Computed example of a mutant assay.
Amino acid sequence: MNRLLYLLTLLCGSLAFGQTNPDVFIASIDTDEEGTTISGLQNLSNDPGYDNQPSFGTDNLLLYAGNNDGQTDIFQMHSRMGRKMRAGGSLAGGEYSPQLMPDESGIAAVRLDTTGLQRLYRYERSGKSTVLIPDLMVAYFTFYDANQIVGCYIEDETLNLFVHKLDEAKTYTLLKDVGRSFHKVPGQNSVSYTATNEQGQQDVYLLDMDSLESFFVTQLPIGVNDYAWLNDSELIVGSNSSLFVYDTFDKKDWEKFADLDANVITDISRIAISPSGKRIALVGIPK
């Protein structure tokens, strides 16, 4: 496979046939005595191009990789101001997986240049960009804290799990052949990631950030690659137009959490949950 095409395939989310133009949707999570419901689902990006990889910086700030006249750039949505705007990017290439820096001083994103160079950058509000991890072809990542980045980098067309400490400018490679979904676990000293098991399905693991040891959590449903933490003990995934939850305390099977309007969204893939747990962002195909 052409190497640049391979990198684009990874960053665009290994989309299946028919999923070439996903949109970012947003909704509210409402909890009362009768249970939890999803309400107010709306298409946030509403664009014919590629819109994907949402992440909440705050409850009122959502970042995502969006189509900008054929190039993928960083977009942000401020719910209080009720507007969507381009947050940054480079004419030299496209940006993917944007996330607010833990100190809120800028936005981190993977940039794939037209030359094939791929690095993790920090974008300041002024528009200036600097490489966060030199000489590492980062594909996906998350911040554990302001000093530690957990994610995977590309080497020999595989994804390798790494922890990078910014204060030491040092990268620790922990495991080869992992998945694309990384999340700091709310209220815990761990980051979750996925790895392919012997049946070809994705298993979720917790990486203890003190010992750097990994612990098995559960297997994702068949065909699912993406998940998020609904809270400190429950995982949430999407399939078609439905959402499912796995409770790590009960350790039962995945249970249906919500049925969304199939006339609005289908083929749900990536999910992001706001810090308060009251908002959810979904990537799916608009109907």
Rank of each mutant, 00 (worst) to 15 (best):
K170R: 12
L175P: 00
F25C: 05
P54D: 08
Y50W: 14
A92H: 10
T9V: 11
R122D: 03
G49I: 00
D259Y: 12
V237C: 13
I29C: 12
E168A: 15
Q19I: 05
S233I: 14
C12K: 12
I222L: 04
P22R: 01
A258L: 07
D32M: 07
G277N: 11
S129I: 01
I133N: 02
M137G: 00
Y96H: 08
T37G: 02
T171L: 07
I154V: 15
V283H: 02
N263W: 01
P134S: 14
E34F: 14
S126A: 07
A146W: 01
A139N: 15
I29F: 03
D210K: 14
L91M: 07
W254H: 13
K165C: 08
R83M: 14
L282W: 04
G127C: 14
Y64Q: 01
L207S: 09
K128D: 14
D73E: 12
R111P: 00
L207N: 09
D203A: 13
L136D: 00
M137R: 02
L11Y: 10
G277M: 07
D30M: 11
S242N: 15
A258T: 09
L120C: 10
L8F: 11
Y50H: 05
I29M: 03
Y193H: 08
D103N: 14
Y144W: 06
L132Q: 08
Y50M: 03
M137A: 10
Y140E: 12
T36L: 03
E155G: 00
S90Y: 04
L120Y: 02
N46E: 02
A16L: 10
S79H: 07
G127W: 13
K128F: 11
Y140C: 12
Y6C: 03
M81K: 11
